[in-house]
Design a protein around this nucleic acid. Structure first.
Length: 192
DNA sequence: CCCTGATTCGC
DNA sequence: GCGAATCAGG
């Protein structure tokens, strides 16, 4: 397939509408998303700004920071979309059998929870917020796609895991990732 | 692992 | 000009 006027027109239109390269490629057919992206760049509309392209030259070689402008971010639907619980989960786990309670509790009552201390106020705030929506999963219910952020005292009944959808790769949901990986002082820009 | 766009470079 | 390969990131 070649870039006919019509196809280029569709490309421009869709790109302008914020469609992704893969979507456009699929629509056009016969091209990959790479082809679309390549064409987009050659047409000089890599930046999805309607028109005005002040500094066109703009060091395309390294001008990375400027290229991150998404007009229409994810609408971000409800987090729990595929949750169809049939049982209220009465928690049969807590039978009268004496629980192990302490296992590694040597001296301190509790190893300082990652969030217990002073962190980013806003991050902390978001965590509080999240804990309200948390699914309160037990260990058994955790999967690779659920946030494994612990809440409460493991030695008591009041202990559970966040359980919200976790970030790809990460063990926590977005909010908890925020407080989990604090010590990232300055992001290194190891660009070639 | 899914996805996104960005860039490079042989064709 | 083209686009696969690669890269950087969410």
């Amino acid at each position: 397939m070649s870039w006919t006027d019509e196809r280029v027109e569709v490309l421009k239109k869709m790109w302008g509408e914020g469609k992704s390269a893969s979507q456009i490629a699929k629509e056009l057919g016969g091209v990959t998303r790479n082809a679309v992206i390549g064409k987009v760049h050659r047409l000089g509309l890599s930046n999805r700004s309607g028109g005005a392209s002040p500094a066109k030259a703009a060091t395309a070689a390294k001008a990375k920071p400027a290229a991150k402008a998404k007009p229409a971010e994810k609408p971000k639907p409800a987090a729990a979309a595929s949750e169809t619980e049939a049982k209220p989960a009465p928690a049969p786990v807590n039978r009268a059998v004496g629980r192990p309670k302490l296992v590694v509790t040597a001296g301190q009552p509790l190893p300082p929870q990652p969030s217990a201390n002073e962190i980013s106020p806003e991050a902390l705030a978001s965590v509080r917020e999240v804990e309200k929506k948390a699914k309160r999963l037990s260990v058994m219910e955790l999967t690779e796609k659920t946030c494994k952020w612990p809440v409460g005292d493991p030695a008591t009944e009041d202990f559970w895991f966040c359980g919200l959808p976790s970030q790809q790769g990460k063990p926590y949901c977005e909010a908890h990732v925020g407080v989990a990986f604090q010590p990232m002082s300055a992001r290194r820009d190891r660009r070639r």
